[in-house]
């Protein structure tokens, strides 16, 4: 099961057709308990540059897009569905989704 956490923003601008535009950011991270060899390698490397005391380095990817939807809940629902069916592999990855109103109406 994919675990999704959602951050929300302010009300989005409304288009002529009643749709609103939202900026969506999806952060994909390996699930807790899944080995993150890239994160571990970075963590082991940082002390060689003098950065001591760094822990829990995790490497993921960020996917950003704009979406038109009736409201924020609908935009969030779309992004959540995209994550569970395509943008993440629920066996090994989690997503953090943030949905905020776009800068201007479309």
């Amino acid at each position: 099961m994919t675990h999704l956490s959602v951050r929300s923003g302010a009300d989005a601008p409304v288009c002529d057709d009643g749709h609103m535009t939202f900026d969506v950011q999806v952060e994909v991270l390996l699930r807790p308990g899944i080995a993150d060899p890239a994160g571990s390698t970075i963590e082991r490397s940082l002390p060689t540059l003098g950065f001591d005391g760094v822990r829990e380095v995790r490497v993921g990817k960020s996917i950003r897009f704009m979406v038109e939807a009736d409201d924020e809940a609908a935009a969030r629902a779309m992004a959540t569905d995209m994550c569970s069916r395509f943008l993440t592999n629920p066996v090994i990855e989690d997503a953090v989704i943030s949905v905020v109103a776009a800068g201007g109406a479309s």
Binding site: L30, I34, A35, P37, A38, T41, N89, V91, I92
Partner: peptide, 9 residues
């Protein structure tokens, strides 16, 4: 299941 990056990269 899934195939993830090899241990130790």
């Amino acid at each position: 299941g899934a195939l993830q990056k090899n241990a130790g990269l």
